[in-house]
Amino acid sequence: MSAVLERPRTASLRRERRWALIWSYVFLVLFAVLFLTPPLYMLVTSLKTSAEISAVTLPWWVFHPTLENYFGLFDSEAYRTFFRNSLVVSLSVVAITMVISILAAFSLSRMRFWGSATLATGVFLTYLIPETLLFIPLFKIFAFVQDWTGIEMMNHWWVLIIVYPTLTVPFCTWIMIGYFASIPKELDEAALIDGASYFQVLTRIFLPVALPGVIAATIFAFTVSWADFLYPMAFTTSVDQMVLPAGIVTTLIKGDVYNWGQIMTAALLGAAPPLLIYAFLMDYYIAGLTAGATKG
């Protein structure tokens, strides 16, 4: 009896599942096309000559591919400066961020002191304060510091090394607190009893065990400092002090006739480092992304 009833039901279930699967694929293809159109169009345009861009032909395809735009950019002094500034700034910010946030996360998750729990919550809240709220007061404060100390803060790429950690440190500390908190207490207690110092506990036990977290936080810090647009727009003005996003937008977009081939090439090359990191370290990237909500 039950077997008789079972068969048509499982068959219909299976058919239902197959249809669900087909529809899923159809929509996934659709969304993938929507999501990937702008980057692909960047690539297509970057391979075109100016003549082909302004010709009235199919815009979605390259008929005479050329690397002219790429060589043009490699030859451009300004673009190489942007790239170098971006690289130096991002790598320095990553180093500073990781030192500050690992030390702080170790202290907040394991050692505790008066007010440390409040501080941990506070760190998370500061992550919520957007940069768009801070750039104007920071602008004024830098002018202030300049008057007082004589150190020129405005229009120098290294100012970004000072301000970017405000974007990266709170979230990285938060990620690291989550990873450190998941390490069993017995592990560090055992090491302490054996006479290890706190520093040794941190470098010999916590960092190796929480390595995935360290990688995720590093990726986060790099991509955020590479991509930021507001602070360089506000704090740097001359071409030799700019980083990539601000540099491309302010120097390549000018006049009435834009050189779109060059702009798209510049944007694509600017997007390349985060994309490469993502391509090779996707799992860490995603772990860092979801850590904020699932561990909090």
Partner: peptide, 20 residues
């Protein structure tokens, strides 16, 4: 594939949209 828009720095991808 679907996470790519999030990975590209928004200033760069917005330029692509501007061009589109």
């Amino acid at each position: 594939m679907l996470l790519v828009p999030w990975v590209i720095p928004p200033a760069m991808s917005t330029l692509a949209w501007f061009w589109l």
